[in-house]
């Protein structure tokens, strides 16, 4: 059996009378791209929020690299190597593109707090070089790296956020609907970018509505419906699973 990066065991979460997560068990193996699909309101985002410290599950455990992360704060979980891309792009709109990518690199290098005022940011050549290289992957080069991030298109913002997460070389990357609300050609650019990451062997959890995206990048797929996992398997197994087709895909063949 290969190494487990994330182990979610018996997680329950209720909001008032609503059971958002019902005894969820999930094992994420190292180097795999694990997709979580399910209809709206199935509990996908709740599950992700339980992993990164935004929500605390009522019962159950979440261990990351063998360490319990329930009750840890967002920045501690990030420093452990679990990094999240949000559904609505969370970037620094008032800073330049270059600075947007430099900041996470500082977090990776200097930890959660450092009072480094005697070396100018402009002389952090290693970090500037790495950030420039990563931006070049998005075809952002030359003086464009000094533009304000807030002025970019939505698709570019989301890809920028992805790059901001990648520069931290996370052990586990969580992607929350990375292509939601994107036009087809925009989606394809994002898929290209994600395939590139897949080649680098990074472990990922991806929540996605777009089946085209899911089947083109995922190694394993878990289907969440009404807060419970109803099926897990390879893309081919999920495609042929009658329960999944009934519950989620509405009986249509993929």
């Amino acid at each position: 059996m290969s190494n487990l990066v994330l182990n979610i065991k018996g997680v329950n979460k209720t909001f008032g009378g609503l059971q958002a997560l019902n005894d969820v068990n999930l094992e994420i193996e190292e180097g795999k791209v694990h997709a979580i699909i399910g209809p709206n309101g199935a509990g996908k985002s709740t599950l992700l929020n339980c992993c990164i410290g935004r929500l605390i599950p009522d019962t159950g455990s979440v261990t990351f690299d063998g360490e319990n992360i329930i009750g840890k704060q967002a920045h501690e979980i990030n420093q452990m190597g679990m990094v999240r891309v949000f559904q609505t792009p969370e970037i620094f709109p008032d800073l330049s593109l270059l600075e947007n990518v430099m900041i996470p690199a500082f977090a990776k290098r200097d930890g959660q707090y450092s009072f480094n005022i005697f070396k100018a940011a402009s002389s952090e050549q290693d970090i500037i070089d790495e950030a420039t290289r990563m931006l070049a992957d998005l075809d952002i080069t030359g003086d464009r790296i000094y533009e304000h991030a807030g002025s970019m298109s939505r698709g570019d913002k989301r890809r920028l956020e992805l790059v901001m997460c990648l520069i931290q070389h996370p052990r586990l990357l969580l992607l929350d609907e990375p292509t939601a609300g994107m036009a087809r050609h925009d989606t394809n650019r994002t898929i290209e970018l994600m395939k590139k990451i897949k080649e680098s062997g990074m472990t990922k959890i991806i929540i996605e509505h777009d089946m085209h995206v899911v089947f083109s990048v995922a190694d394993t797929i878990s289907v969440l419906a009404q807060g419970a996992i109803i099926a897990s398997g390879t893309p081919d197994e999920i495609r042929g699973n009658p329960i999944v087709q009934e519950a989620y895909l509405g009986g249509a063949h993929l």
Binding site: H75, P93, M102, E124
Partner: peptide, 24 residues
């Protein structure tokens, strides 16, 4: 002009992102 100052500006711009980027 330091990384420290840049981080303070980032807090002004989006504190949520700062937390999920690993900064206390």
């Amino acid at each position: 002009r330091s990384p420290f100052g840049m981080k303070l500006q980032a807090i002004k711009s989006n504190q949520t992102r700062m937390k999920y980027t690993g900064f206390n």
